[in-house]
Amino acid sequence: MRIAFLGTPDFAVPSLAALAEAGHEIACVYSQPPAPRGRGQTLQPSPVHAFALAHGFPVRTPVSMKDPAEIEAFVALNLDAAVVVAFGQILVAAVLDAPRLGCFNLHGSLLPRWRGAAPIQRAVMAADRQTGVQVMRMTEGLDEGPVLMGESVRIDALETAGSLHDRLAPIGAQLLVRAMAAVEAGKAQETPQPEEGVTYAKKIRRKETRIDWTQPAAEVDRRIRGLSPFPGAWTTAPGEKGPVRVKLLLSRVEDADGQPGEALDDGLLIACGQGAVRILRAQREGRAAQDAEAFLRGFPVPAKTRLG
């Protein structure tokens, strides 16, 4: 089919690659505009934009798909279908109605649970035991369209949002290829989402990223893993020149007690409001992420140290 692909982050790249490999004509790739990244904060293309350029696909990076000129350009592509994977913009009816067969979205949850912007992070933070990926027909409502296909996966005990993301992306890419083949053949079966069980995966807010050590260990652990590696849950630790900001990237719950935020040993066992968490991976500001053993060699956190 002749399709447009709309996506922005790393999660979407395998899907674009798989659709092209399956023989679909990529009429145009849409992605969010280049944004400041890295230490120099220079403008850089999104992962999908960079992949498209490297493979010779036409690219558009509109500030808004509601712009009449952008809608006109999209309609003029004369598409069979459009595929959306974590694009980051709402599509208006004129865009959704333009492709001959419609617009389809790959979403990183088992709908109707976790509609919205951050389904992978929210699933880990909520201690869900399973999640998955689904392909749905897009409607004007937020992730409300009928589902064509889906696959579920187990969320492991030490799962982070990053590790779950990396497992779901290739599964979703292959699911999307199968779904588009069914659409092209006129054999796609669309199942309306149930009205019960709707939850929303709101965008991660900055105030959610700072660890509150008075929370129970299970809650702290889920927040650490659910926000890892980005944007990263963080705390502060005493340094030679004052408090040092530290991202906590992996943890597990252990049975121990102490004052919230207190290091209970020399190995990053930190007391919470109830129980404790063992930090397994951390990152000082301006440094690379490290496993706990390597981190502690460069930045000791002895017992009785208070974090936060």
Rank of each mutant, 00 (worst) to 15 (best):
Leu168His: 04
Ala288Val: 01
Thr61Tyr: 01
Asp212Leu: 09
Trp234Arg: 11
Gly116Pro: 07
Gln259Met: 12
Gly108Pro: 14
Val83Gly: 02
Asp212Ser: 10
Phe87Trp: 10
Val220Trp: 04
Asp257Pro: 00
Gly88His: 00
Ala233Trp: 09
Leu227Met: 13
Arg287Asn: 13
Leu79Pro: 06
Leu248Gln: 00
Ile270Met: 10
Phe299Trp: 11
Leu111Ala: 12
Glu254Arg: 13
Ile120His: 10
Ala182Arg: 12
Pro9Asp: 09
Val85Thr: 04
Leu280Met: 14
Gly308Lys: 02
Pro146Asp: 06
Tyr200Arg: 15
Gln215Arg: 14
Arg210Asp: 01
Ala86Val: 04
Ala117Ile: 11
Ala52Leu: 02
Pro260Cys: 02
Val147Gly: 02
Ala98Gly: 06
His107Ser: 05
Gln259Gly: 12
Gln32Val: 08
Asp10Ile: 04
Ala35Tyr: 10
Arg206His: 14
Gln41Glu: 13
Ala76Cys: 04
Val63Leu: 11
Gln259Thr: 14
Asp221Ile: 02
Arg205Leu: 11
Glu151Gln: 14
Trp213Gly: 07
His49Ile: 01
Gly286Gln: 09
Met138Asp: 06
Ile3Pro: 00
Val84Asp: 03
Gly88Phe: 01
Val183Tyr: 03
Val277Thr: 05
Gln41His: 13
Leu269Val: 14
Arg60Asn: 00
Ala93Lys: 15
Ser46Met: 03
Met138Glu: 09
Val85His: 07
Tyr200Trp: 12
Phe230Thr: 15
Thr42Gly: 14
Val253Trp: 07
His49Val: 03
Asp97Met: 05
Leu111Gln: 09
Arg122Ile: 05
Gln41Thr: 04
Pro119Arg: 08
Val85Tyr: 07
Leu148Ala: 13
Pro146Asn: 07
Gly298Tyr: 02
Ile211Pro: 04
Ser15Pro: 13
Ala292Gln: 11
Gly88Glu: 00
Gln189Glu: 15
Leu249His: 08
Arg178Ile: 00
Gln290Arg: 15
Leu250Ile: 05
Thr61Gly: 00
Arg222Cys: 06
Ile90Ser: 04
Ala73Glu: 08
Tyr30Gln: 07
Phe51Ala: 13
Trp213Ser: 03
Leu6Phe: 02
Asp166Ser: 13
Glu196Thr: 15
Asn78Gly: 15
Arg245His: 01
Gly308Ser: 13
Cys28Glu: 15
Leu101Thr: 01
Pro33Lys: 10
Ser64Thr: 15
Lys66Met: 13
Ala118Pro: 00
Asp97Gly: 02
Gly197Asn: 13
Glu184Cys: 03
Trp213Asp: 03
Ala93Tyr: 07
Gly275Arg: 05
Gln134Gly: 15
Leu79Glu: 06
Glu144Ile: 05
Ala54Gln: 14
Thr305Tyr: 09
Leu91Ser: 03
Glu285Met: 07
Gly23Thr: 11
Gly308Ile: 06
Leu264Ile: 07
Ala173His: 10
Ala27Tyr: 11
Val135Phe: 10
Ala303Glu: 14
Pro9His: 09
Gln274Tyr: 03
